[in-house]
Design a protein around this nucleic acid. Structure first.
Lengths: 343, 343
DNA sequence: CTGAAAGCGCTTACAG
DNA sequence: CTGAAAGCGCTTACAG
């Protein structure tokens, strides 16, 4: 064991010598397009080259290739936190799609802090990524604007900002879906746990929800919060203290909703029976909770895939349209009017 | 916007010309060690070079550097699933530590499938990573053995296999801690939801638990399961069907434990009151559940950090010892003997 | 169909 | 203290 025993990998030159041809021929046959390969060598020569390449376990050196072509086939991905299952799942989608394009990705956490966003982006750029997928855009669009100004190819995912190409869930529509569900259940006093004010997800989900209630002539209280359980718990406490107290709570993400469930219980109320609670994203855990959580399913993996595909078109010089994917309401016991035992 | 507007970044040559010196001098001043830099140019020359570099926003081209030095400063990380918060958190630790060494990391999912482990590893190797951090080792050690055979530098994290350098939690000890806790509560009939049979985590946690019970002359039933909620639910159902039924369940990870909580409820029993349930890892959610989950805290982030540090010593040609980090039992309502409202 | 040459942007002995 | 040169492993006009 130990690097000392690793022998140098085969190079174009190694296989060229073995096959008795020039390196340029080997390059065309092995790494060129099919047409290139076809006109670069006779069938037999090509055959021989491929055989030697296999025997010597030749693998193109990506550094040499990138240096020469000025293309790294690397894309940088920025997320607030990878340990958030929503972002991790989106990233899995990005990675899947990237593999299909021969691209490698690397992720970094920005913790939603502008200084870190900048630092991580510069790091990616100094690593010569071909482009970026940003999952942590702030709604003000300042940072994205700077990148666009500099001509850096990028797309946004999960959150949109300004007019930059983005793949998101139709969060506004998702918010409306929850409002309609609540209204159908007869809830006239509803409130929103709105998440961070800089994220378009929370903004749009809240707006869709509030607009639908407004159409019925009803106002909804809303309070900002962290996207985590603790934030949701606190926000729910605050909202439940109102008089008259709301009978339904919409948290703009599932972790905040789980916190809200706790707050409802702490107030001596039964989630589902006394206070309806709905979340957003439909993470796998939502269905497994003791009181299964009603949630809006957002196609996280698919969003990631599409974002990467969108980036590919940007790298191709196009100026693609943003995409909004359809959300879907999953009704469960937390809004069912009575407690239902899981499964 | 668009890549057409991006101007070529400054190179060593650009700044050399501006400063009126040779590229080799610039290289030594900018990218060499402090001593190199000192003896490469007079203070004024060095000063001038640095000034020009800053003005031109010079950043060393990593591909050229890697090509020349045969070192990529890249490490590949393999995990079963990044959307598992345990692995995501470990990865965050790896990444943090890597940044401190000027290394970049990229993660890939293997889904615990040998074919994917191999494919992803080959991909990483063809990208010329300097080394690997494997979070998905199988206990048989076959794959790790092959890598060692080939002289590929790597370390294991979270799970160990064979004698390969690994950073893990002391899982055996963690299992014992739970057993001791259960015994102190008077539970004589306990059972284990043991996880996948190929993971050292589940194996060791189960062994530690069972050994401690055996010391009291007691046997424990155990059944393998997936590491997810569904797997835990099924396994718990099976265990609870025994006659006499166990009064305490130890699930080797928190998601399986959450599934077990559901199964306990479905059986008309109260978690904590009728059946004690404990998990492992102490994910953030554990404390936020309606019945907060007793769990063994494993230092996930720290494990990731240490694994990277260990890899650095391996890359340095050393043959370091494996490390086992201390687990810590967090007692909560799910084993408290009575239901306690969250927070 | 095939080859010879230049060059991507670095580092590092070698010389002075 | 500083420079000139070679070379890492590729790709791609240019020639034939």
């Amino acid at each position: 064991m130990g690097r000392e025993e690793r022998k140098r990998p085969a190079t174009l030159r190694t296989v060229a010598r073995s096959a008795g041809v020039d390196v340029s021929t080997v390059s065309r046959v092995l790494n060129g397009s099919p047409e290139d390969a076809a006109r670069a060598a006779s069938r037999e020569t090509a055959e021989a080259i491929r055989e030697w390449a296999a025997r010597l376990d030749y693998r193109p050196n990506p550094h040499a290739k990138s240096l020469r072509t000025q293309r790294s086939n690397l894309v940088g991905v920025l997320v607030p936190r990878l340990s958030d299952v929503v972002l991790a799942t989106i990233y899995e989608g990005v990675e899947d799609a990237a593999a299909g394009h021969g691209l490698a990705t690397f992720v970094m956490n920005s913790h939603d802090r502008p200084a870190e966003q900048r630092a991580r982006t510069e790091l990616a750029l100094s690593r010569r990524v071909d482009g970026l997928v940003l999952g942590d855009a702030h709604h003000d669009g300042v940072f994205a604007g700077e990148l666009a100004e500099r001509g850096v190819p990028f797309v946004l995912v999960s959150r949109h900002a300004g007019e930059h190409p983005a793949v998101t869930c139709d969060d506004y529509r998702g918010g409306r879906l929850v409002a309609e569900h609540f209204l159908a259940l007869g809830h006239r006093r509803a409130a929103v746990i709105a998440g961070e004010p800089f994220a378009s997800t929370g903004i749009d989900r809240t707006a869709g929800f509030a607009d639908r209630y407004r159409e019925e002539g009803l106002d909804v209280a809303s309070v900002h919060s962290g996207f985590d359980t603790v934030g949701g718990h606190r926000a729910a406490e605050q909202l439940l203290a109102a008089d008259p107290r709301p009978t339904a709570l919409f948290a703009v993400n599932d972790f905040a909703a789980i916190g809200a469930l706790g707050a409802v219980r702490d107030a001596g109320l039964r989630p589902g029976a006394d206070v309806a609670v709905a979340g957003f994203n439909d993470i796998p855990l939502a269905a497994e909770l003791p009181v299964p959580l009603t949630s809006v399913r957002s196609p996280m993996h698919e969003m990631g895939r599409r974002a990467l595909e969108l980036l590919v078109t940007v790298l191709d010089g196009q100026h693609p349209e943003s995409q909004r994917l359809e959300p879907e309401l999953q009704v469960r016991a937390s809004t069912a009017g009575q407690e239902i035992v899981t499964r």
